[in-house]
Design a protein around this nucleic acid. Structure first.
Lengths: 341, 341
DNA sequence: CCTTTAAATATAAACGCTTACATGTATATG
DNA sequence: CATATACATGTAAGCGTTTATATTTAAAGG
């Protein structure tokens, strides 16, 4: 069996509690004993058992990261590794460990969260998505378990700490850009409608159109998963319309990629025939043909801020609910063009 | 405080040990009591405390995933999320949790591994890289801690369980493809030389050249990190040579991406002016211009197999060291072309 | 030199679970 | 009917920490 606090105590000729205090660097222990104990620890190669510690202090110094059900598909979109990267950085600095969800379906993910929470596996949770009527978020609220969400909560907005972009403005701005370029038939390709990010971005799109006196056409609005295939399918649908759009506001780079591919299959050129704007500024948005005009939402920073908020919440009791808005910027590249009939 | 096994016991009118046995679904408990106890658990909303359990059984039902130091940079290359995805799938099926390293530098990563191991945070570890004289691997061997590596161990190959591709053959085949196309001046752009994957792929490249009676030129060999910038820098160097290569064997898609970008900056066309082959078959290799001829190493499967091996190892004592070779296949796309002087 | 007070360390009771062993009860055996 | 044999459950001792409380020791005060 591994060396325990008792072995160290024996070797150093002190009580286990003293060793424990040395570990915690308590001021109640004299310098001398500290030295002696530390020496004993070194010599025996002592390392604390986290489980025992966690049990005693009822905490785990670990945070759980929850990706949309089936991390399997989630990890396909570089958005998640990138937030994870941000979260990891902060976790590392603050010496927290990272537990990541492994997915499956909604039900399984829910079970996993319960295990994390009830099982005291993690001290807090970062939710990497936000949608309406989410059982997991409800559960966390109900249990009063510390968590922050990356994205805007569907309800209880005021009492939940979250980090987000100003998606409405971003979407509005990008849509206006298209309008400024003379486009009037502008489609919207968004994520599934249960996601708050989708509704926000749609809202911005709508506002821009309305302000420009353009009617919002239902058949110009398509919602689906954030992936390539969805982008492709969306194009197929849109091009079938009597009046196909001349521009598209797309809310995810992976989707945009699919859109570009499909346009090509249809023999259409972007931006010559159709202009598109995108969201996320994944590195891939620079390498597509054409490079995408996209909203840089600073994914990495979202992760950093999310983790920071959570850890503050964990460390100071009764930390008030916070909201942090990470600024976006639009990367103008070459996927849009002035409309010439 | 949360509801414990004792509360359940009291409510069901049994001893705590009985409750524990019900949880473990021991055959020693009668159906009747099981029902009664389960009912009590439901009613009280009981959930086991993992820390207590782990402490008692000295295990954690969690596996650690170690990415190269600084997950920060690691996560930039889609390779890692993709293995993670595979690992996650298996972890999920077998109800293991996933602990991921958060990086920093080599030293910090080493500390983190020690914390995982000594602290009983995880039952086993998956190493997502393999390089020579790696302190972490040495440590795990030394401690006889269960682990598997994704990649080929630098030493103790026979006694360590690992999953890998046949990188030598893959590289050889892809190089031969270039040779068959009439290329003679073929450069090699690989990862850092401490990585086993780099030496293996270089070996295959070398063998192919030698078998074709082509001399291996030192100035045609460049080694650097697996990322875009490295690819760019490599091109800059190679094009400065008196006899610049007409083809390149590149060992990573991200690098290839950099290569393509830089060639373009130099006004060179791939494959018209220079042919390249790549490795990994990341989704991005389909969307570059031109789409890359690349080795599909089946990253997801590497993850699946790695996790499977580890879990087998954990579940059956004295599981022998295994080696699993995930087959590769070459995706012939359009980044290579017959050499026409 | 005895009493106070402060500083340093020890004792022991948690934390919530598992499990070897002990105990009790019902059934089968001769 | 006494005894052996299962079967079902209870008892209690860990697992390795932390921490409130108690105890010892040393310094200070009168």
């Amino acid at each position: 069996m591994a060396v325990t606090i008792k072995d160290v105590a024996k070797k150093a000729g002190v009580a286990p509690s003293t060793v424990s205090r040395v570990i915690a660097d308590s001021p109640r222990i004299s310098i001398d004993t500290k030295k002696r104990v530390r020496k004993a620890m070194k010599e025996l190669g002592y390392h604390p058992n986290v489980n025992a510690r966690n049990l005693a202090v009822r905490s785990s110094k670990a945070i759980g990261v929850i990706m949309p059900s089936s991390a399997e598909t989630a990890l396909q979109n570089p958005f998640f590794p990138e937030v994870l990267r941000g979260v990891g950085t902060v976790a590392h600095e603050t010496e927290y460990s990272l537990y990541v969800s492994t997915g499956g379906n909604d039900q399984q993910l829910y079970e996993e969260v319960k295990r994390m929470v009830y099982g005291h596996r993690v001290d807090g949770i970062i939710l990497l998505y936000s949608r309406m009527n989410d059982a997991i978020m409800d559960f966390l609220v109900e249990e009063k378990f510390p968590f922050v969400v990356v994205g805007k909560p569907y309800e209880n907005e005021a009492s939940i700490t979250y980090v987000d972009n100003d998606n409405i403005s971003a979407s509005k701005e990008v849509t206006r850009h298209l309008i400024d370029f003379g486009h009037k038939d502008i489609a919207f390709i968004g994520g599934t409608t249960d996601l708050v990010v989708t509704t926000d971005r749609f809202e911005g799109y709508k506002q821009a159109l309305i302000e420009a006196g353009i009617k919002v056409r239902e058949d110009y609005v398509i919602n689906d998963e954030f992936n390539r295939t969805s982008g492709k399918k969306a194009v197929e649908k849109l091009l079938k319309l009597k009046i196909p759009p001349t521009a598209m506001v797309i809310t995810d780079d992976m989707m945009s990629l699919g859109v570009i591919n499909m346009l090509e299959e249809f023999g259409l050129d972007c931006p010559e025939d159709i202009s598109i704007t995108s969201f996320n500024n994944l590195y891939l948005s620079e390498i597509t043909r054409p490079p995408l005009t996209t909203v840089d939402i600073q994914i990495y920073k979202l992760g950093i801020q999310g983790a920071k908020c959570l850890i503050e919440q964990l460390q100071t009791k009764d930390e008030p609910a916070k909201r942090v808005i990470v600024p976006f910027s639009i990367k103008y590249r070459s996927s849009t063009k002035r409309f010439e009939p």
